[in-house]
């Protein structure tokens, strides 16, 4: 069943087209990763899927509801968003930060309900943040911080989570940790994930489907195995890439051009 429907979406900044005529259907309980070179329009597209950008043309609907018709509060019940560089407010505890995910449930005039607090406690437990819950959110390390931001998104209890480069600035182990956590949510809770990723190997390793975006348009869309091996991939990035299979895992390796040999 289609959970996210992106229908002929175009986005502009002034007279510059950032995303042009993108259409994608994302099935519920699947993970779709958008890859592409810098400036391809990935960030703009995912922000639009989260309902945070005004579309120039087209529409985005989630679970059958057109985002443009909804106010912020109802949108927050459908889709959660993790930006590439989340703002971490100093002086707010990890627990308070994660509880921000429940604002659309209890509203800004009321305190979190018992149910809200239970959900927050559950998410903290699931993401192994319980021991940190009283810590200042700004004092966490990169890996802990990213887990905390993910916890806030999961506390929203939405069917769809949109993430922009969730592994930015993390070391290899913490990159794997975050992606494993997401994979578990997809497999066990039926979460629908739309993410952008720079690391093509990780993208291929965790994702059911890859969408290659270049200059604002979809160049290729399909199973990770096919997209990673396509000639369009290297063309879009403007470099030579080789796919090596190690223990059954596709590894994308950049190759230096002849001039550098």
């Amino acid at each position: 069943m289609t959970m996210v429907q992106i229908d002929h979406v175009s986005l502009r900044a002034g007279s510059t087209t950032l995303v042009s005529d993108v259409s994608l259907d994302v099935t519920g309980g699947s993970w779709c990763t958008i890859i592409g070179p810098n400036g391809a329009g990935k960030t703009t597209l995912v922000a639009a899927v989260a309902g945070l950008r005004t579309l120039y043309r087209g529409s985005v609907s989630i679970d059958g509801e057109l985002l443009a018709d909804l106010n912020e509060r109802r949108r927050a019940r459908l889709v959660a968003y993790v930006p590439q560089h989340p703002e971490i407010p100093a002086g707010m505890s990890v627990e308070e930060y994660v509880a921000l995910g429940r604002v659309s449930f209890h509203g800004v005039l009321h305190a979190p309900s018992l149910r809200d607090r239970e959900v927050v406690a559950g998410v903290l437990e699931r993401l192994e943040l319980t021991d940190f819950r009283r810590r200042d959110s700004a004092s966490l390390s990169g890996g802990e911080r990213q887990r905390m931001v993910l916890a806030r998104a999961l506390a929203q209890a939405t069917k769809v989570v949109v993430l922009d480069e969730p592994t930015t600035g993390l070391d290899v182990r913490h990159q794997m940790d975050i992606l494993e956590l997401l994979k578990t949510e997809v497999a066990e809770c039926g979460l629908t994930v739309i993410a952008t990723l720079h690391d093509l190997t990780l993208a291929g390793l965790f994702t059911d489907r890859l969408v290659l975006l270049s200059r604002g348009a979809v160049v290729m869309d399909g199973p990770a195995y096919d997209v990673i091996r396509s000639t369009q991939l290297a063309e879009s990035y403007g470099t030579t890439l080789r796919v090596v299979t190690v223990d059954g895992i596709d590894v994308v390796v950049p190759v230096r051009g002849d001039a550098h040999r």
């Binding site: 912020e72 968003y81 707010m92 921000l100 604002v103």
Partner: peptide, 27 residues
């Protein structure tokens, strides 16, 4: 004073506050 809780949500910035369900413009 009633806006206090909403301003706490605002501390994560406009975009994120909106994604959490806050109508930033009206606020």
């Amino acid at each position: 004073v009633l806006a206090g809780r909403a301003l706490d949500v605002m501390s994560v910035g406009d975009d994120e506050a909106r994604s959490l369900g806050l109508s930033v413009r009206s606020l």
